[in-house]
Design a protein around this nucleic acid. Structure first.
Lengths: 204, 204
DNA sequence: AAATATAATGAACAGTGTTTAAAAATCCAA
DNA sequence: TTGGATTTTTAAACACTGTTCATTATATTT
């Protein structure tokens, strides 16, 4: 069964090759402006070959989408051992903002892109990492509430509210909607907003 | 000068006709999936004609964009006479959420769409309504701070923070990122989050 | 009515995602 | 090692896209 093993390995290598090329192009030119022909050209294969390894363009997106959530989740896990949930929350926020600002196109793919979410619905079983990240935040806030550290009673409400707040900040920034502010200050303003939010939700 | 006046009127009517068709299609199928040929077909003209009235697809988008902000601003003006700035803020929030949830595609065009923002930059002088809406919120928060009604010191920070919070909520909803929640509850959860936020920022 | 100016058209260009029949490469058994 | 079966890659084709432009049709002015 050695030759079959190699075949499967080669198939996987090809998939990885396509994914890497696609991701590079998505992050530079965006999802819409990246064509299958662009990806094919980059890996020096014909466009048709790509359809041997992926159903369609959305399938490529979906796979990258899942990988991105795995990456974010890996970053979150680095602070999972912080005992104080409020301090853990602060670090989660920092990681989230850093991730978003450092990978704006990827963040967009993860939290804003509209089109391919429908096809993601279909393959829901493959997609668990998104909920995982949400639950990680939720768990931390649960502990915050239990220890009476934040001005919230309902865990789910707190999770959504805080996530929405941070998402709103980075989302408006990424989509260039802070044009009424001095461009060089925007990045620091986001961090000030984060600190401010932490103070706002802190009990006492 | 009557015939020239009529010509100008006809030109404007044609522009309006194109804009209405484009808007209808944008809101149903989205910006990317709507083609110039679709718009042309809807108004029963050839695709080339559209380029007699608009520079390109982005130009059509930009015009609709401006009109949408005018509409939002008109809604805001309805509550401008509420004396208590905190209550005015509450109503602004309601209007904003209602507008976003009632016109999700249009909201997307206004606050999330990435591509055509670049060409908007170029025609910055025509675009004042966006800043107007931002300033309206800012003015209200300024009054809130002056009267010691909210737990904020900095007006600009408060404006960005609150805007981001609400934008985050409606944005995640519109982009279908609340799939971990029971679908039928999502809408009410957003409103609960809004009430919660108002309580959170309220002083005392 | 003829000349001029304006507006609408449809074909053309270069691009898109995707499908498919044919060609090339690989594998396996004789 | 060779020949047949399988798999993989390819290029062409299909139906689209935004945009441009020479031609045609319409309307206005002389």
């Amino acid at each position: 069964m050695s030759i079959q093993a190699r075949k499967e390995r080669e198939k996987l290598e090809m998939r990885t090759l396509i994914l890497k090329a696609a991701k590079d192009l998505f992050l530079v030119d965006g999802f819409e402006k990246t064509s299958i022909r662009n990806i094919a050209e980059k890996i020096e294969y014909s466009p048709g070959t790509i359809y041997q390894y992926f159903d369609d363009k959305d399938d490529i997106f979906l796979t990258i989408h899942i990988q991105a959530f795995d990456r974010l989740m890996a970053l979150f896990n680095k602070v999972s051992d912080i005992a104080n949930p409020f301090e853990r929350l602060r670090e989660i926020g920092k990681i989230y903002v850093e991730f978003a600002l450092g990978n704006p196109e990827m963040y967009d793919l993860m939290f804003s892109m509209r089109a391919p979410m429908a096809s993601l619905q279909a393959k829901k079983e493959e997609w668990g990492c998104g909920f995982e990240a949400f639950d990680f935040l939720k768990q931390t806030l649960q502990e915050c509430i239990e220890q009476g550290l934040i001005r919230f009673q309902n865990t789910e409400l707190a999770t959504i509210s805080i996530w929405a707040h941070v998402h709103g900040l980075v989302s408006l920034y990424i989509h260039e909607r802070f044009q009424m502010l001095p461009p060089e200050q925007v990045s620091t303003i986001i961090h000030t907003c984060m600190d401010n939010m932490m103070e706002l939700i802190k009990k006492e």
